[in-house]
């Protein structure tokens, strides 16, 4: 059984997002381990991109800072390799098309597989453009994670039917970031996705509190949290692993 599939077998999955190299490689590595020790079922690891067009200000800043501090795609691969020696929790990369394309698609996927990556999320590659990427990923047994948005409507069945690993349901319009309220009709959106999906689905964008997570987990198989965690990292810097751990534990308990 694939590692991603296993992530959804321990009740509802909690999926934290952590930007590699923010504020530095060592701290992000510790944060990922701390999240896993405290119940993360799958970890989304962000490879920073200079111009992350799908991100709100919090993750944009993390991307810029991490790059300023010298993170590179090769250093992220090395970090994942070290983490993989310590854990079997699935990892998916979250990055932008150019980071993969420019590195060389074959070379990227080969190195990612060797490091222990299970899936890749590319928010700027929609269904119409995915084959170019997914065909190479398939060769290396890496799942290409598809996203479905509140505006997907008539596209949902088509995307869900071809989805691999898990489906990332975008809860809200706009970019990533903490939201006090999610206004999308989540029950309807999730049920539409589930009608065609062969893989589990997790909801992300705007979720920060245990209450929101609990509400989302009533419908979906997992909950993804990014900006709220990056905010903690930005606040506590090198001391953040302890606080990230506490936060992940509270979120996992809320949805268990």
């Amino acid at each position: 059984m694939s590692r991603i599939k296993k992530a959804f077998e321990n009740g509802k999955a909690f999926i934290p997002f952590i930007t590699a190299g923010y504020p530095d490689v060592e701290t992000s590595e510790k944060n990922i381990l701390s999240a896993i020790e405290n119940g993360a079922d799958l970890v989304e690891i962000g490879i920073p991109f200079s111009d992350p067009t799908a991100e709100g200000p919090v993750i944009q800043t993390a991307n810029v800072e991490a790059l300023k501090n010298g993170i590179t795609t090769d250093k992220v691969f090395e970090m994942v390799k070290r983490l993989r020696e310590k854990t079997e929790v699935p990892f998916v990369f979250m990055t932008y098309a150019n980071v993969v394309f420019s590195y060389g698609m074959e070379r990227f996927c080969s190195n990612a597989k060797e490091a222990g990556i299970d899936g890749i999320i590319l928010p700027d590659v929609p269904f119409e453009e995915k084959d170019e990427f997914s065909e190479v990923m398939k060769k290396f047994d890496i799942d290409m994670i598809s996203l479905i948005a509140p505006t997907s409507e008539n596209r949902i069945a088509m995307i869900a039917a071809e989805a691999e690993g898990f489906i990332y349901i975008v809860s809200s319009l706009g970019v990533t970031g903490v939201r006090s309220k999610i206004t999308t009709d989540i029950p309807t959106l999730v049920s539409q996705v589930k009608a065609s999906a062969k893989v589990p689905c997790a909801i992300g964008f705007g979720i920060s509190t245990p209450e929101q997570a609990k509400e989302m987990s009533r419908y979906a198989d997992g909950v993804i949290v990014g900006s709220a965690i990056i905010k903690i990292i930005s606040k506590y810097g090198v001391d953040s692993p302890k606080y990230v751990g506490e936060y992940v534990r509270s979120m996992k308990e809320a949805i268990r």
């Binding site: 929609p126 269904f127 119409e128 084959d131 948005a149 596209r155 706009g174």
Partner: peptide, 22 residues
């Protein structure tokens, strides 16, 4: 790349978030 639209040779396409596709 059969599903991809708006190509000029290898260039072009629609590399945008799903939210904007419709």
């Amino acid at each position: 790349m059969d599903k991809s639209k708006g190509r000029f040779g290898t260039h072009g396409g629609q590399y945008i978030p799903e939210t904007l596709m419709n």
